[in-house]
Design a protein around this nucleic acid. Sequence first.
DNA 1: GGGTCCCGCCAACTT
DNA 2: AAGTTGGCGGGACCC
Length: 338
Amino acid sequence: MSSLDLQNPETRPPAYHRKEKSLGLLCSNFLRLYSEEGVATFELDDAASKLGVERRRMYDVVNILESIRIIAKKGKNQYSWKGFGEVPRALEELKEDGMREKSNHSDFCNPVKVSKNIENGVPSSLQNNWEARSAASLRSDNRRDKSLVILTQSFIKLFLCSDMEFILLDDAAQALLGDNHDTTALRTKVRRLYDIANVFSSMNMIEKTHFPESRKPAFRWLGWKEKPENGSDTPSDLNESKKRLFGIDITNDISKRNRVESSTNCINQTVIDVPMHNRHGDLGIVHDGIKLKQRSKHSSKGIEFGPFAPVNVSGLKDPERRRVKEFQEKLTSTYRPQ
DNA sequence: GGGTCCCGCCAACTT
DNA sequence: AAGTTGGCGGGACCC
């Protein structure tokens, strides 16, 4: 019987594809929903039901978006929609914060210390009244220190405060963990980074890739680019949400991620593989305990992919990797660790 | 097999 | 006390 295929759990396609429920897609849909609606405020409940997800999942998205001020928490179940106009400033201030922390450096990218700074009144970009109010009552505890908002901000700072474009997943997790080298903690942190990366991927702010040789997962910062939907992006005021292309469709689960990805998207930039535990750091660039990849000019054009940034630019082939070696020297000579 | 990341438990926090 | 928020990690899925 031909229908047998459908009966057989092994061959039958799953009831739904995993990606249909991904945070990235949820984020895309969320952004599309509210950027089009032009609302000033929204309720979490409402968003959850409109998007057909459980409440818990909304918290993930909302917290990450809050970290770059697309939305702001007003109160219980209440958020205000700030729009995309705030993002550049948020990133800028995040960078300033990060730089400041970096110069006092042990604090840099240590979520715990960073959040203490916020609470101590260092003018953090992300502070708002709700947050400020809550912070007071949370001062002594560490739940807040581990919050997704803080973690996301720290993650962003990792990119913004260094001249690096690529960060190995493990290194990012390590850096965000601070001194803690517990493997379980590391695993947990990695999970969270995937969450964050998923939503940023859906916004084309970040790209998940792998280094060609080691196949180690890594992130590449794409930054915030205006999304010229049809033609040029107009440098308009910051007030209203500027349109970006988020989720093409609810069913856009077809895009294949990963794979050829890492190198194929690189036209101007070269990816360099650095052994994770290179003792002398002769290839890797060590920055505050993490190895990073130096940013070679940004890709020539803004990334125009949909969610999950599938890559279809023809890629670098093996011969290209040879250049890597040359490039490595350039990197190590241009980057000056403190 | 290791990388990804959905899912929901349950503790912290708020009302 | 009840409701809300969200850290956390098990384990299924994917490549």
